[in-house]
Simulated assay, not measured.
Amino acid sequence: MKQIRPNVYSVGAIDWDRRLFDELIPLPEGTTYNAYVVKGSEKVALLDTVDPTKSETLMGNLVSLGIDRIDYVVAHHAEQDHSGTIPEILMLYPGAKVVTNAKCRAMLIDLLHIEADQFLVVEENATLPLGGKTLRFIYTPWVHWPETMCTYLEEDKVLFSCDFFGAHLAESSLFVADEPLVYEAAKRYYAEIMMPFRPTIRKNLDKVDALDIEIIAPSHGPIYDNPRFIVDAYKDWVGDDVKNEVVLAYVSMHESTQKMAEHLIDALIDRGIVVRPFNLTHTDLGKLAIALVDAATVVLGSPTVLTGAHPKAAYAALVANALRPKTRFASIIGSFGWAGKMTEQLAGLISNLKVELIPPVVAKGHPSDEDFLALDKLADEILSRHKAIGIAR
């Protein structure tokens, strides 16, 4: 339990040991489940709860703070790492009302079986006075679910942003202490969770810019006492500009695709293009997602397995397709033994990407001199595309 502003406290939990989220997302630095108490002269509000595995920590913090009454539990987002302890809170504080929007109310009824009469539904820009503290509710849909909202504490100029601006990072510091560390964690979080919703996030950033904010308190990671640091980072990430970079995600079975990947890496470097290679047999999904945020070009490399793409290459394609980065160009390299439709399959798996597909380079067996020359030509084609959009010389 730590104070953010007078009568505004952080009461959430640090999860030092969690290493996987949604059974999918790596958490190399753990995470936090941030919850906040705002005490007015008349009412007390709890903003979000914690993952049910950490409910004892939340309860202990509330006891330490001397909270014997909660009037409102603000639910910004229905996902259980924020909402999962609401039923327990309602049992301990039976007079509390769950404050949220209509979409979130419906989800919480489905997910947690909270009774319908325990809710107070609020509209966009509605205010809730607590006595010297006023909560204003800002709808921010699709960061990253359709029901997500934020709360602005008017008197203290604090934005409680839920997953918006979050970072999976377990740290003992309440506020950002190491900007490069937090930047990397926040970019990973954006890449893995927020990137598919870039157009909507841009609109929500406009709402944030219209507020006079001194502190951003997200639901994961440290609190930002320099809001421009994270807001400007998001503006960069959701913008349309790409960098003179190629993400090369590949897997190789008998070194043929490996040799092709190595040759292409060297060819791209020789042409002044930054290459970010990922051998998919031991790639951190989060690192790959981060690289996709800015890269102008993605190249997938795969051998042919039973006439199709290697499953790891197909998985990488599915990940890229789901994350929808602002990548402009894509290509495919690889090899086959007798026949197959590896390139057609991989191209079909990235249909969500708004990219120009540069003709693939596929070798029969071990790559020949002609194949290596074709890879040089592919590097030339990538350079030409990058020059055409003004990111390479």
Rank of each mutant, 00 (worst) to 15 (best):
P94Q: 02
V176G: 13
E42G: 07
L318D: 14
A75L: 06
S41N: 14
P277W: 15
P146S: 11
H386K: 00
P94T: 02
H386W: 02
L47G: 03
P325H: 11
F21K: 13
R198M: 11
V251D: 08
R5I: 04
D206G: 02
N321L: 12
I389Q: 07
A316M: 07
G40Y: 10
F160D: 02
Y189S: 09
I67M: 09
A295G: 15
Q345F: 03
V44H: 06
P277Q: 15
P367G: 13
V246W: 01
K312R: 14
L211M: 14
V293D: 10
F329Q: 01
F137I: 03
L112Q: 01
A233C: 08
C150E: 05
A379S: 10
G60Q: 06
L306P: 00
L323Q: 12
E381G: 02
L174M: 10
P227W: 01
V98M: 01
P367M: 09
P359G: 13
P227D: 12
K354M: 09
V44L: 02
E344S: 15
V299R: 14
L159G: 09
A392V: 01
L349I: 05
T32E: 09
H220N: 07
S335Q: 06
G286D: 13
L323G: 13
D117M: 04
D225R: 13
Y190T: 04
I269L: 15
L24S: 08
S351L: 04
T200F: 11
P227N: 04
S256F: 06
A96Q: 06
S172C: 05
Y234E: 05
A249W: 05
T148A: 11
P311A: 08
L285K: 14
D225M: 10
N279E: 15
H310L: 08
H113F: 03
F175D: 15
I4K: 08
A322M: 09
R271M: 10
I358C: 12
D371G: 06
I350H: 07
D117E: 12
T49W: 00
L153R: 12
M342C: 10
M253F: 03
E88S: 05
F137Q: 04
V63D: 07
M91E: 07
F160I: 12
K2P: 05
S256L: 05
A379P: 01
E88H: 03
M194W: 03
I193Q: 14
K259D: 13
T307P: 13
D371E: 11
Y36T: 04
P129V: 12
T85M: 02
G40D: 07
I223W: 13
S256I: 03
P359V: 08
V176M: 12
F165I: 02
R136P: 00
I25V: 11
G286C: 14
A45L: 06
P311K: 04
T148L: 10
K2M: 06
A313R: 08
M253N: 14
G272P: 15
S252W: 06
V182K: 01
A291G: 06
T85P: 10
V143D: 05
L169T: 05
G166N: 03
L169P: 11
V122R: 08
Y189T: 11
S335K: 04
V362K: 03
